[in-house]
Write a protein that binds this DNA or RNA. Structure first.
Length: 132
RNA sequence: AGAUCAGUCCGGGCAAUUGCUCCUCUAAAAAAAUUGGAGGGGAGGAAAGUCCGAACUUCAUAGAACAGGGUGCCGGGUAACCCCCGGGAAAUAUAAGAGUAAUCUUAUGUUUACUGCUAGUGCCACAGAAAAUAUACUUCCCCGGUUUUUUUAAGACCGGGGUAAAGGUGAAAAGGCGGGGUAAAAGCCCACCGCUCUAAUGGUAACAUUGGAGGCAAGGUAAACCACACCUGAAGCAAGGUCAAAUAGAGAGGCUGCUUCCCGGCUUGUUUGGGAAUUAGAGUUGUUCGCUCGAUAGUCUCCGGGUAGACCGCUAGAUCCUGAUGGUAACAUCCGGACAAGAUAAAUAAUUGCCAUCCCGAUUUUUUUUGGGAUACAGAAUUCGGCUUAUAAGACUGAGCUAUUU
RNA sequence: GCGGGUGUAACUCAGUUGGUAGAGUAUCAGCUUCCCAAGUUGAAUGUCGCAGGUUCGAGCCCUGUCACCCGCU
């Protein structure tokens, strides 16, 4: 597995997994309330690891803006995922996370840059690490 | 040269690092999956809105008609079209000319759902006398009567007619304008203009031009119902097809167990222990065992079903590019060349550097140098042909306008 | 992706042969009451989502556009 990659096995795809995360998982926000995350932690002996997904509400912007935000969220996770993966494989845990927008919309951030998204994602990853 | 309007085009580039997705080849014994390596492809002019038209698929359907829906000047293009091209007519903007003016003519552009209200029905508020079979409020004119003034005569009032010329209302008032005519008027008559009908000529046609007749009869509204002509079955790739876990079973088969009553125990359940009945599910048989059938329970296999999921549909096509020929053009034909995204909680990106274009500031006579900022609208989802809407900066063409120079 | 629907007062809704746009709630003022509530009388409030067109005249008819909502794995 690539160190900074994000392949199809690390994504959440089925509808049932999303429903369990939204019903049973916990919700946390970043400090400036821009980014939200729902996550769930299970014990998994054979295949420990992390699965993620990214969701952006239809009301926050048009299609180009939403796609770009999703790419940036994935990029932010991809760069900072190494510590979280190591922690999971040591403790035999499986973490599933759905990143989504809180009060983040196109009017306030017309031009998106990586630096707009990165701090919130790092903060959330630290919070999840703390809860393991 | 500038700004304006209209149309057409274009829709930043290169490199490094880190990633995503599809295809081909290759290694891990083979197949599948996965991983590694190499190579190649990876958003638009609107991909958007989903407003039209098709291809394709399934369902329905003997055929025809009605209803419903759509289209509506003429000719052509097209697979088809509420599309495109050419032409006609009308409206309108600007400029010039004519005219006292209304207005007309010419040129250039723009727009047009541009069949029919001389088939029928409906509607036209308020105002106004009257709003569609015209009527007669105030005027105007004639005749008769009464009355006043000094008389002819004139005024006032009443009655009977004439008229639609003037007034006022309205979006719109029953051809317009000028002359004749008359008691006053009136297409009552005449010229010009308009309208209707009709003939000839030109044109494939829409229509145009010219002549003749009528003598005004015919207000507006069909994006009112409707009439006429032509077109039209319905739904949509979440269409539809193939494979198919889990689960439920309503089906088929195999294997195992299976009578009823009473008493006791405790785990209060059709569980276990003991006893009794011998008519003990039915058949076979003298009887028992056994066997067959049936009921019921468990378990296994199949069956059908088609969910999760996977695959096909899925990208080579009314395809794109260059050139030639025909055509005013839309477009057609031919020669040659190219293969150019195919994802599915949904890829096509992120960061950095350099360059490009534009803007602002500093420096400088200019060139230059340097700092900062900006680079739009927007993301394929079965595929095409159009339409509509959004769009930074730039390029080109045309039109008239303004300024300068000659 | 495909299909369908709705925009009228601060809120919930009426508004059909096209002719000066209404109801209820809420708001404000008066009356009533010692005061409040309730009751009662009155007032104010609208670019009829936006832009064009047809018509003498458009909330209504037609076209375009914007926003919102619903259904179909």
């Amino acid at each position: 597995m690539k160190k900074y990659g994000l392949s199809a096995q690390e994504k959440i795809k089925s509808r049932k997994e999303f429903e369990t995360i939204y019903q049973l998982g916990k919700t946390i926000h970043s400090s400036n309330n821009t980014i939200k995350a729902n996550y769930i932690v299970d014990i998994e002996e054979q295949y420990p690891g992390v699965e993620i997904a990214v969701a952006v509400s239809r009301k926050s912007g048009n299609a180009v803006w939403r796609n770009k935000l999703k790419r940036l969220l994935r990029e932010s996770y991809r760069i900072n995922k190494t510590d979280l993966l190591n922690l999971c494989s040591v403790n035999n845990k499986k973490v599933r996370v759905v990143f989504s927008t809180g009060t983040f919309n196109q009017r306030e951030y017309k031009k998106l840059k990586l630096n707009d998204v990165l701090p919130g994602v790092i903060e959330i990853i630290e919070m999840i690490k703390g809860s393991i």
